[in-house]
Design a protein around this nucleic acid. Sequence first.
DNA 1: GTCTATACTTGGATAGAC
DNA 2: GTCTATCCAAGTATAGAC
Lengths: 194, 194
Amino acid sequence: MKQFSDLTPSAERIVDAAEGLIQTLGYNGFSYEDVAKIVGIRKPSIHHHFPSKMELGAVVAQRYTHRFREALLHVEGTVSKAPARLRAYADLFEATYEKSRRLCICGMLGAEADSLPQEITAQVKRFFSVNLEWLTTVFAEGMAEGSLKSGHSAAELAEAFMCTLEGALVVGRGWPQAHGPRRSAEVLLAALAP
Amino acid sequence: MKQFSDLTPSAERIVDAAEGLIQTLGYNGFSYEDVAKIVGIRKPSIHHHFPSKMELGAVVAQRYTHRFREALLHVEGTVSKAPARLRAYADLFEATYEKSRRLCICGMLGAEADSLPQEITAQVKRFFSVNLEWLTTVFAEGMAEGSLKSGHSAAELAEAFMCTLEGALVVGRGWPQAHGPRRSAEVLLAALAP
DNA sequence: GTCTATACTTGGATAGAC
DNA sequence: GTCTATCCAAGTATAGAC
């Protein structure tokens, strides 16, 4: 498949535009025409870089996951204790939320999964796998170091935590008074404090 | 606006079909042709009952919220303690999840909100308001009766709880190994046990 | 209430010139 | 890399007969 890493500058602007459109309108809600308007070129020029919409969607998801992994690596390098790492993780979602209440790309694509080509849903699965693996490790460390209450397995805690954050983005779009992912994460982490 | 309560039998079958389609494909992902195939009639016959797609979507959301309220009323009537009520609430989401991993109608429409007409997003807002109000009351009762740990406000707990359940449905679609809303709710409620 | 026929628009995609 | 021109399919919607 096409790699996001060898995108030309034009291709990158297209991916930027598509990313924002998927986050707000969904994959089925945006068109090449929308992208063209944002980038300032014409529809067929988009096709020159991404022959099919499916390819464009897959690259958007791929790049998104890659950037998320970079952010996770950065958290590992700069934050040591488990609860603080989880708060830093929640802040990644909060940052998305603050950008005019955008959705997580893979939350949106996950919701739409049944109407998407396999090439895209595969990227979505990978995003969730990567995140849950990372969170599971952090929860396990937290329980081992005694900074998090145990009771359920690290994997179960990780899944619940991620669901809360993904859900907070969804609810945040549908309900204007919502408080966003950071707040809900705080509620959970307070309950899990030993 | 059209009331779901005075739907003719044909109109009801159309709403049934549209509900399932929105839950799996999203509002932007289904067409009148899809509905026609399921119901076994032709496209223009759908228009006879619902002149525009927007009306159909709004009625689907309206009926969904109404049924949810009935379910909440039933829980109030049959379950007394707060933690048990919250588990019964989570089971409403679990039931949706078990139906081939369908999404909450308003979770899906909430995600797609920016590409939807106001008539539909208004219904989505109402769904979340109704649910959060009910959950807030239950959490408040739980804290009052001592069956739930306090620390955050009932409203904050309610929001976090609902986000977890909505998120569990989204993650469940994108990640096949997911365990569903009941499991994540259990993790949260265990952490909130006094 | 349902049908056929049809209008109009948009969306994804290709050909070929510059 | 970008454009104009164009194709074809699909999607929403309407008119009018049965």
